[in-house]
Design a protein around this nucleic acid. Structure first.
Length: 888
RNA sequence: GGGGCCAUAGCUCAGUUGGGAGAGCGCAACACUGGCAGUGUUGAGGUCGUCGGUUCGAUCCCGUCUGGCUCCA
């Protein structure tokens, strides 16, 4: 290892000194972006790790993610050339190599992807020239170390490389599948060209396309994708009118090459993190794999939290939780006894905060969230450990059952590798097969119940865009562009059928930004369809309809009418959501970020990041702030502007909303109280909302709270109804409405006093009557037998009395009964010194049976009941004889 | 979206053929001790998460809801 490292460290020019002079990771990032800016590219910020509007993608995993719609032609940008340094996360989902991270040279959960993009502007020639110039002139990589691959069909690219760049044909491979890229089974695709770096003959491995090309000598550093075809549903390729370019170069890889190191973990950025971790955990060996795991995971966790993901038990939050816990486990392996992970955050922020201001701004939130999760995990481990110890104490044999291992993991979150460590310490092994079997069943269950929501993005392609006219009007007309039935394109929909109508223009709002879609009516000359919902996909509004008369055909012109009353109520709720959001931020703090929202005609629901329950006092304050804004009755303004201006104006972007170049900025409340990007429909003046009333506050997931509220007429009615309830309560309590609380609390303490008094009296009654009752006991074979009825006693009193009787009688058998309505309660007691002859349980079974009931208990005390009140005197009279029979 | 587990005193938790609500810590009062600290005694504190069902009887069995933990997708 040491030898190999020395060889690697000789670096690209063959002498180790260069490593010291090599560009830092941050300098490479900046060099890339400024080079492409000079080539006419717009420097675009990294998009969030949480992809908006793409449910198929767990996390942003490539530079092109934020441009997907642009490549598909569904949206246009203000520029034709762009360059980015995109933060990416790969964990969970399809390519889940979480377990490899830290143990290989180039696997990461988080990485940065440098990319330059052309949207129908330049193509292969320029893309290749840019890449070559940047690598050889800006980064000064030696040309002879670079190896090129081109698709078998792509003579054009091969010719550019060989004839124009001057690549030696022997350093160029023509590959098939490795050099073809596609977004999905259909859609844009094309050949790619990759640039490899040759670490030199002293490293094992062959050039791309050879048998041992997966070894470390040739490392892919840059992938240039030439999007020139559109693949249709039948698999046919059609040339795109405006071919595009998408490239990607892993920042950590190129840094490793430039710094002359073998593993990405040896670049300056990672070394800083690793050293900080080693120092925090007092670990001397910097080669320790666990340090790499922690350094890698620190990056993904911090950036995910900065983008609003919080540890939880599902979806993205769950992936984050797993990464955090894996990091903490590795810390524990290195001997950590205290929470350490969160303490590393400042080091990361110092290293990367300049390039990612969001990270810097979220520092305290990241520390808080990581610390909380570390504490939670520690509790989980303690708990699991206790259960494991318990199971081990009664274990027979030397194998831990798979079922137990699985249950520890599944139910209590106790990591299997930890179970394994503990088992090994005690010379035990795990039943891995049984564990795998249980896990396979769990997977099967989950998959079988997966949802089957139709994803129109996958099944059909509709060109163009629907024009939305609904901000100004709730009526309009439009031509049918397409009809869908059961997810398939169709030419017509007949009366009685359900389907989807796509128009070229519509006033119907499509579900987005948490606001539900509009309902209403579509009418043709002789046709009519009810719109039950409107959704958005591919830039189009999908009207989900039930045809009620005539039939609809592609090309028909329809009159569209939105259900105005419904729309009006939705507007109130949606506008109130914006005021609520800002009020929450002012009262609870700026860490409040929208995590989801649902706005319909009945109510509004707003989910946001916040660590603890919102107190009643805080809710009151929030309600005041919102209603103050409503009473202010200021005009709502919407402005279209580009994204940069919007951010400059202080606009907050809403989660789940897709923004094009031109965004709609909504200002509401006095003096720009709330400024947000939003495409929804809103009130003209805040006063239209009338009133906002919070109806509930609850938790959705760890770190996420939910507030539900109502507005307008509904809020007023609710408010009136609760006032009326107070009046009603006051009447029942015989108090004035203003004094109900006081009255209720007085009554409650009175009830308490009375209950205590009753308990005292019962006790007294039991003591005195116990004494009286003992008079009537008869003696059978040396045992005093007492069987009697007590008026008005309950079960607790019977028991008390029973104890008193036993105390006073010495050796005794006692049976006491009380009648309430048509129900008889029985208790039986036998003093300890007689339980070997007579058992209380037997007595109860016998006499409860005679009274049409059942009962049971211990030998010295038993309870039961019956219903045959008439038979009670005879039953009690028979007790002495029964005792005699037991003694016989 | 689909499973599993949990909810008992202010806190940490015990509590099985369904039959009388407990421990430790903390709290209060009193006593001992020169002070601090401590020790001892006594006491307060519980609709056993919610609502419903089964049962003579439910903290316990069944179901609903709420909250928390956890795994899978």
């Amino acid at each position: 290892m040491t030898l190999t490292r020395a060889v690697w460290a000789q670096g690209i020019h063959g002498h180790g000194a260069k490593r010291e002079l090599a560009m830092k990771t941050a300098e490479i990032r900046e060099a890339f972006l400024s080079y492409f800016e000079q080539q006419g590219h717009t420097r675009v910020g990294s998009s969030s790790l949480v992809p908006h509007d793409d449910p198929t993608l767990l996390f942003t995993n490539a530079g092109m993610n934020q441009f997907k719609e642009t490549f598909l032609g569904l949206e246009t940008r203000a520029y034709l050339r762009a360059c980015t340094s995109q933060k990416c996360v790969r964990a969970g989902g399809k390519h889940n190599d979480l377990e490899n991270v830290g143990y290989t040279a180039r696997h990461h959960t988080f990485f940065e992807m440098l990319g330059n993009f052309s949207f129908g502007d330049y193509f292969k020639r320029e893309a290749i020239n840019f890449a070559w110039t940047f690598l050889t002139e800006v980064l000064k990589l030696p040309k002879e170390r670079l190896w090129i691959t081109v698709h078998t069909s792509d003579d054009e690219a091969a010719a550019i490389w060989i004839d124009e760049i001057g690549i030696d044909p022997s350093c160029l491979s023509r590959l098939d599948e490795d050099n073809f890229w596609q977004m999905g089974d259909t859609g844009p695709c094309g050949p790619s060209s990759e640039i490899f770096y040759d670490h030199g003959a002293h490293v094992p491995g062959g050039p791309p396309g050879s048998a041992d090309d997966d070894l470390d000598r040739y490392i892919e550093i840059w992938n240039l994708v030439f999007m020139q075809f559109n693949r249709d549903g039948a698999g046919e390729l059609h040339p795109l009118p405006a071919p595009s370019v998408d490239t990607g170069m892993g920042l950590e890889r190129i840094a490793a090459v430039l710094q002359g190191v073998h593993s990405n973990y040896e670049i300056d950025l990672f070394q800083t993190l690793i050293k900080a971790t080693a120092s925090a955990l007092a670990v001397a060996d910097l080669e320790e794999k666990s340090l790499r795991v922690i350094a890698d995971h620190l990056r993904s966790c911090a950036f995910l939290i900065a983008d609003g993901v919080m540890p939880s038990n599902e979806g993205r939050g769950y992936v984050l939780r797993r990464i955090i816990r894996r990091a903490v486990r590795h810390g524990n392996k290195l001997g950590a006894t205290q929470p350490f992970f969160a303490t590393l955050v400042p080091v990361l922020v110092a290293e990367m905060g300049a390039a990612y201001p969001d990270l810097q701004a979220s520092e305290s939130a990241i520390v808080k969230a990581l610390r909380a999760e570390e504490d939670q995990f520690a509790r989980t481990l303690d708990n699991g450990m206790a259960i494991l110890e318990e199971a081990l104490s009664s274990l027979e044999g030397a194998v831990l059952p798979g079922e137990l291992v699985f249950r520890l993991y599944d139910t209590y979150g106790f990591p299997v590798d930890l179970t394994n460590d503990i088992a090994r310490e005690r010379n035990l092994t795990l039943d891995v097969e049984g564990y795998d079997e249980a896990m396979a069943q769990q997977r099967k269950r989950s998959q079988e119940s997966g949802s089957f929501k139709v994803d129109y993005n996958e099944s059909v392609t509709i060109p163009g865009e629907t024009q939305f006219t609904g901000y100004d009007s709730t009526e309009g007309s439009g031509t049918i562009l397409a009809l869908l039935a059961e997810g398939e394109m169709t030419q017509s929909l007949a009366a009685g059928e359900q389907g989807v109508v796509v128009l070229n223009s519509t006033p119907f709002y499509g579900e987005s930004g948490g606001q539900v879609g509009d309902c209403g009516l579509l009418q043709g000359d002789s046709s009519r369809a009810d719109v039950t919902d409107t959704t958005k996909a591919q830039g189009h509004h999908f009207h989900h309809v039930q045809v009620t008369a005539g039939s609809l055909s592609v090309g028909d012109v329809l009159t569209s009418t939105v259900d105005n009353a419904l729309r009006e109520r939705i507007r109130l709720n949606h506008s109130a959501t914006h005021l609520l959001h800002e009020a929450l931020r002012r009262v609870l703090g700026n860490h409040v970020v929208q995590k989801g929202s649902l706005v319909d005609s009945e109510r509004l629901r707003f989910d946001f990041s916040h660590g603890e329950a919102v107190s009643a006092a805080q809710i009151e304050e929030i309600t005041h702030i919102v209603n103050e804004q409503i009473r202010g009755n200021s005009a709502t303004t919407t402005q279209l502007m580009d994204m940069d201006s919007a951010v400059a104006a202080g606009a907050t972007a809403l989660f789940g909303e897709k923004y094009g170049d031109e965004v709609r900025v909504l200002s509401m409340g006095s003096q720009g109280f709330s400024v947000e990007l939003c495409g929804g429909t809103h009130v003209d003046r805040t006063g239209d909302i009338g009133l906002l009333l919070v109806t509930g506050e609850s938790g959705v997931a760890a770190g996420v709270r939910r507030i539900e509220a109502i507005t307008g007429k509904a809020a007023l009615e609710q408010s009136l109804a609760s006032s009326q309830r107070v009046v009603d309560v006051a009447e029942v309590l015989k108090a004035t409405p203003n004094a109900v609380v006081e009255k209720a609390s007085v009554l409650r303490s009175e009830v308490r006093e009375l209950e205590k008094e009753v308990a005292r009296l019962k006790q007294k009654l039991a003591t005195s009557s116990g004494g009286d009752l003992t008079q009537s006991a008869v003696e059978i074979g040396g045992i005093k037998v007492l069987a009697t009825q007590i008026e008005g006693a309950d079960v607790a009193t019977l028991r008390e009395t029973l104890d008193q009787c036993k105390n006073k009688l010495g050796t005794a058998v006692v049976l006491l009964a009380a009648v309430e309505g048509d129900k008889i309660s029985l208790v039986a007691g036998v003093t300890k010194d007689a339980t070997d002859k007579v058992r209380a349980g037997d007595a109860i079974k016998e006499f409860a049976g005679r009274l049409g009931g059942k009962g049971g208990g211990r030998p010295d005390m038993a309870q039961g009941g019956g219903t045959d009140v008439a038979a009670l005197p005879a039953a009690l009279a028979a007790v002495p004889d029964w005792v005699a029979s037991q003694l016989a």
